[in-house]
Design a protein around this nucleic acid. Sequence first.
DNA 1: GGTACAGTTAACTATCTAGTTAGTACACGA
DNA 2: TCGTGTACTAACTAGATAGTTAACTGTACC
Lengths: 213, 213
Amino acid sequence: MPETTATEGQGTAAEEHDRPRLRDPEGTRRRILAAALQEFSAKGIDGARVDAIAERAGTNKRMLYYYFGSKDDLFRAVLRQRLAERAPMARERDRTGPARLVELHDKLEGSMDYVRLLMWEGLERGRRREVEQELLRRDSLVEWCDEVREAQRRGDLPDDLDAEQLVLSELALVMFPFAFPQITRLVTGQLPTDAAFKVERRAFLERLTSRFD
Amino acid sequence: MPETTATEGQGTAAEEHDRPRLRDPEGTRRRILAAALQEFSAKGIDGARVDAIAERAGTNKRMLYYYFGSKDDLFRAVLRQRLAERAPMARERDRTGPARLVELHDKLEGSMDYVRLLMWEGLERGRRREVEQELLRRDSLVEWCDEVREAQRRGDLPDDLDAEQLVLSELALVMFPFAFPQITRLVTGQLPTDAAFKVERRAFLERLTSRFD
DNA sequence: GGTACAGTTAACTATCTAGTTAGTACACGA
DNA sequence: TCGTGTACTAACTAGATAGTTAACTGTACC
């Protein structure tokens, strides 16, 4: 018979408010995903520690394997969820109007974790043929390119530039500072998370678009 | 007294050509750096394995600590060396002329390992106040910004755009595809290392510059 | 009120990994 | 030819880490 320390701290009613439900499958799952998002975003797949994720989620490491199978599967689940969350936002955006870069910048600036997740994906998985949510992502990007071509036909965007390359470049302009914080700091003296930087970048993107179209 | 297996395979003259010099301090150091560059570039600091670096360098793991002190110090040594190698190239380049983006693209396309090293630095060390070769890098970038401002005064570049933001954006346009190979593939159908992609990107950057200035 | 199963836990294990110990051998100057 | 320091090596270690075991428990359903 094992030492019965397991029940320690669960008997008293005073502690009930700490953990309202003793069992909460969906909650546990959600908490693990949230904790994993933070951990993976901060340290990548190799750098993240399974124990740290479990502790952050306020649960046991075993639950992580119970729900997700492996560290790698957990990373993919996190990425899948985050991508699915953002997918609908892309469609809402005006992707060809004069405010498109500023709008994209605003959408992205609050989700550093998302950009970092994509970077880890690129570095640790970039060579793969298939990527998480391949079809969803490709469809979304193809749609964007189609809209650009449409706008080119209308004359709203310059038609001598390849649509795909243009989309790639707009992503570059907005994502790059968040992806390379050290370069951003070396060039501008500020980190991409600084409020002052965001204001300057925003203003720059605004002027760039107006000058460009 | 330990077993004297150490001399095994070193006595015969027939094996001499495998290892021309039994001692080659500079060579060993160089081989470790080269191996570390490959390993760190491919897998990052956390992902790289010290044993793998030693094996790739054809030496013993102990030598790595003998010459560089720690895994972390080795990474910094690799980064420092690579940055020092590239520093003079920046000054040679014409950074304000109409071919500047294409030229930067050409300079960068052969050194994926360099871009990846910078990405790992950004992800695993981005928050730090100081970065490897801080002064060298900042000086180089400040010089670039000054040249841009000069060109703006001359009227060669649009003067309503902040010089720092412009430099950051030009780096973004060129580095982004290499940093996000999976996004590049999803948008264009090609990896940034594909010859076809490079041609297209080059053409795009050329047209972009001519339309912009 | 019993029972079956999903949810939860602590403790365990095999393996890996950065870093070390302690010793060997080459080269070079005296 | 001897002695000394630099270069080099194999084997080891302590701690970490992903993943597992097995036992336990709340809960839904009968």
